[in-house]
C-alpha cells in the first residue's frame, strides 16, 4: 500500500547535488523516481528506489544525512485532470498533502508519489475513488 522514500540532506553549495546523484549512480541504486526541493540554504533530494534499506545504508555510510519515510504511489493516467482528481479526493477526506512528484516506468506507466499526513486515511480514500495505491515491488 505504501512505498519507502529516502530523503537526503543536500547543502546548497556548488557540486553537492551532483555529488549525491553520482554516489547513487555509482552504487547501482535502481531509481524509479527522484525529486529535489530546495531553499537558499539547503535542499532535500528524495528518491524512490529498489531495495531502499540497502540504498539508505550505503548513503549513510557514504556520509550523507538521510531519513526514510513511507509515501504513497498512485497510478496516474495520461488523461488531463487525473492529478487534480487525486488531489480532490484527498482534500475531501481532509488529508494534507505535503508534496508530490512523478515517477515514470516504461513497464508500469506513470505514478504520482504523494507525501501525506496520514497514509491509511489517504489510501482508503483513494481506494474508495477506484485509485489503488501500489507497493514497492509493483514499481519495479
Amino acid at each position: 500500500m505504501s512505498v519507502k522514500q529516502i530523503s537526503v540532506f543536500i547543502e546548497n553549495k556548488k557540486g553537492k547535488l551532483a555529488e549525491a546523484t553520482k554516489f547513487i549512480a555509482s552504487h547501482n541504486i535502481n531509481l524509479r523516481a527522484l525529486s529535489i526541493a530546495d531553499t537558499q540554504d539547503f535542499g532535500i533530494l528524495r528518491i524512490i528506489c529498489e531495495d531502499p534499506e540497502k540504498a539508505n545504508e550505503a548513503l549513510r555510510e557514504g556520509g550523507f544525512l538521510t531519513t526514510m519515510t513511507k509515501v504513497l504511489a498512485a497510478p496516474i493516467s495520461d488523461e488531463p485532470g487525473s492529478l487534480a482528481a487525486i488531489l480532490e479526493v484527498l482534500s475531501e477526506s481532509n488529508v494534507i498533502v505535503e508534496y508530490t512528484y512523478a515517477s515514470l516506468s516504461e513497464k508500469h506507466g506513470a505514478y504520482m508519489i504523494l507525501r501525506v499526513d496520514d497514509n491509511q486515511v489517504a489510501a482508503a480514500a483513494l481506494a474508495g475513488a477506484g485509485i489503488k495505491t501500489v507497493d514497492q515491488a509493483d514499481l519495479f
Binding site: Q5, S7, F9, A37, T39, D41, F42, I44, R46, L65, T66, T67, T69, E98, Y99, R115
Partner: peptide, 18 residues
C-alpha cells in the same frame, strides 16, 4: 550541523527549525 534525529523529509519542518 544537523543531527540525524533532527533531519526530516519535509522542507516545512526544516525551515521551521531554522
Amino acid at each position: 550541523e544537523l543531527t540525524p534525529e533532527q533531519f526530516t523529509d519535509t522542507m516545512k519542518d526544516l525551515t521551521a527549525k531554522e
